[in-house]
Nucleic acid binder design. Structure first.
Lengths: 191, 191
DNA sequence: TAAAAAAGCGTAACAGCTAAACTTTCTAAG
DNA sequence: CTTAGAAAGTTTAGCTGTTACGCTTTTTTA
């Protein structure tokens, strides 16, 4: 990697670090974008060149490839496992893996939990993969790629993390969400 | 109704009318809040006193009582009908009723469809009723009011309208969504 | 080593939104 | 009927996120 790219990455990291620190110290809404740029010793315009999606994006620096993981969860699930179950396990695994990996992951989650704008943004990031996930599910089930049922399952799956966040017991809550998606609402069957 | 209240309502209506007209003529993002205030012959601060939730709220003037209708759909459903089915029918009815009632309803829907900010806002308005709906469902099922399964069903139900909007055939798409919520994803059962 | 590419800068501006202090209009109680 | 106060509205001024523009500096590459 050349010097240019290294410096670029350093500036970006500087911004993300400053942002996360200031946000966790004083709260997302109490910290302005000018201040973050100052803390990273960079101009505001530079900040927005690194994070064109805006202030919220500063918090979601690590943009790992979740889409591939989602599609793989469907495609490569063990025999006898349902699609909802595969997605369920994949989400569980993703979460606990990151808790162990990143030491600041707890702060990160707390920040998101307490900031509506960030919750929204996180949700939108997940939902970006709706199309790809729906297509994978449809392919697996032998249905057209835009089948509404597949889209619904994809959509609800991707929304599940945001939905259970804030429960006393998010793990159990997630189980219940996938009970619903896997088995439907118990009681009189719909016509 | 006194003169004061009448004038207030007139101003509000003036603003909503101007906004809807300008938005449909030129597109949501091409019309600024100053211009709307001008068109309604009112100051910008006045506009925001009438619509404290911001520019998006100008489009959703009619805030009828959907929450009561949702809760009633669960509570007063005919015997033998499942909760998802009751909610399904209620959403269908709500939609077709408003198509017949309001002549500008089509413009209104098209505007929302083509404007991400408005879609988001519409979704948030629906989700405001999540708590009440979840409580009604839980009460009906004899579960604690904050049961995660009930919350999930409420959440997914309220999200269904936004989800099917934009399909070739929204009606059928809605049927599929409620198939999923009522019967679960077909195939190997989840553990 | 010259020139293209890219990172960064400062200024200026726009959009949405809010606070503050002040004027007009309506309501209602004495 | 009058008058005090509530409520609607106005002006001004400003904050925050975000972008455009034109310029300088650094790094790459031909």
């Amino acid at each position: 990697m050349g010097r240019r790219e290294r410096k670029k990455a350093a500036t970006r990291q500087s911004l993300a670090d400053a942002a996360l620190r200031l946000f966790t110290e004083r709260g997302y809404d109490e910290v302005g974008v000018r201040e973050i740029a100052d803390a990273a010793d960079v101009s505001v315009t530079t900040l927005f060149k690194h994070f064109p999606d805006g202030k919220e994006a500063l918090v979601f620096d690590q943009d790992v490839d979740r889409e591939a993981a989602l599609v793989a969860a469907v495609r490569e699930r063990p025999a006898g496992q349902s699609v909802p179950e595969a997605l369920h396990r994949m989400l569980q695994g993703e979460h606990s893996r990151r808790v162990r990996t990143d030491p600041r992951f707890d702060d990160f989650l707390r920040l998101i939990d307490t900031t509506p704008a960030l919750r929204e943004y996180a949700r939108r990031m997940w939902l970006r993969h709706e199309h790809a996930l729906a297509a994978a599910i449809a392919d697996d089930a032998g249905l057209p790629a835009d089948d509404p049922g597949c889209r619904a399952l994809a959509h609800f799956t991707l929304e599940a993390p945001a939905l259970v966040r804030g429960s006393h017991d998010p793990d159990t809550a997630l189980d219940r969400v996938f009970d619903l998606l896997g088995n439907g609402w118990p009681g009189t069957r719909a016509g």
